[in-house]
Design a protein around this nucleic acid. Structure first.
Lengths: 204, 204
DNA sequence: ATAGTATTGGCACAGAGTGTCGATGAGAAG
DNA sequence: CTTCTCATCGACACTCTGTGCCAATACTAT
């Protein structure tokens, strides 16, 4: 199901105990395929477990809920975003630092784009997942807010920091929404354009 | 449980058939009280139904889900927002039209503020409801996007319209977040301040 | 082989949400 | 007053998610 060797730096293969039957990655792809094929609401956890050859109970040891499956390794995404923000030179204005970080965060290798498209289609068009994703977005916004807070020398829960976290997320989501309906658009351009659109309206 | 007479313009009292045992309004307050008292997750639908003196099955005829209860009459809120936007003079710049509309939308009579605070506390601090509310926010953003689209003469699903809907929502939510943690702050000031904060960063 | 250990999966349970259908009760018609 | 009509109610059974518990399994080290 997945021939990829364990990436270096990951947890080393267990030394003792029964070997795992699968991986979160493999299970995630199996589930996502089923969601795309039959629709999220028409696939039960039992269906996914059966397709992967594991028990229903075991499914919940890889993903804490059915809703969590499509996001995959979200903690990795958060690290990715943090690293993009950290790369911004201190002399770059905050607007540009945020814009460039968000744009870079959403750059993916060409061969991963079709998969990203599938994943985001499921995430943004399934009501259950639109709702659940709000919890994930909270964590992403916090990363942005912490960066803003540090840059401006204010508290990480200050109004300014929280607000800019919200705004960056909003710009990202609207870009994705647009991107999903038009194959020919480039995600990075849409995000950058969103930042400039907001500037155009807010600084009339 | 509620001595308020049916508001004019509402559906007239049924002419035939068995009379209703309660109203969505009364049931909503009963549920919200329980949520505040014991926490959303510790209250079952059966608890609410029993407190209201109805059957569990009947609860779902008043609210399509437990998650829907705390929002109450959301369609009314959407109408309220639409009307605020419609009041904006055509010559007002878009930034000010949005800012003033969002601010006005969130003005409430003094005596309703404590109740609003309770409601928003439950909605914004309960993970299940944070997630579910994303579905309600979609509709609110659409109202803003339609206004923007009309103002700018672009499609209602254009990138600009969608983005500004997202940004207005983000500013509102961050204002609420701030408002809930500090009793002394004024919601309207926080929202207006949020608009100006974004402007300050985006138009450096 | 045996001991130790991590993973697995079966079972039972709580709770949300839904379809079905008979019971209820209030106004309307006679 | 009696009967009819019909919206509302609630009981029952069912699916599905998510969780606690615990014994079976399978791998490594000694």
């Amino acid at each position: 199901m997945q021939a990829v060797a364990a990436a270096p730096g990951k947890s080393p293969p267990r030394r003792v105990g029964r070997a795992r039957l699968t991986t979160a990655d493999s299970l995630g792809r199996t589930g996502l395929d089923l969601f795309i094929k039959y629709g999220f609401d028409h696939v039960t956890v039992e269906d996914i477990a059966e397709a992967e050859g594991i028990g229903r109970r075991t499914f919940f040891r890889y993903f804490s809920s059915k809703n969590d499956l499509p996001w995959g390794d979200f903690d990795g995404l958060l690290l990715r975003m943090r690293s993009r923000l950290a790369q911004a030179p201190a002399e770059t204005p905050l607007f540009d630092a945020l814009r460039e970080s968000v744009v870079d965060f959403n750059r993916f290798p060409h061969d991963e784009v079709p998969f990203l498209r599938q994943r985001m289609t499921v995430l943004l068009t399934t009501p259950t997942l639109v709702a659940h994703s709000a919890l994930r977005y909270q964590a992403w916004r916090r990363v942005v807010a912490e960066f803003v807070a540090e840059r401006l020398g204010v508290a990480r829960d200050s109004h300014m920091a929280i607000t800019l976290g919200q705004v960056c997320l909003g710009i990202s989501l609207s870009a994705y929404e647009e991107w999903l309906v038009d194959d020919s658009l480039v995600l990075a351009d849409l995000i950058s354009g969103g930042f400039h659109d907001v500037r155009a309206v807010f600084a009339y």
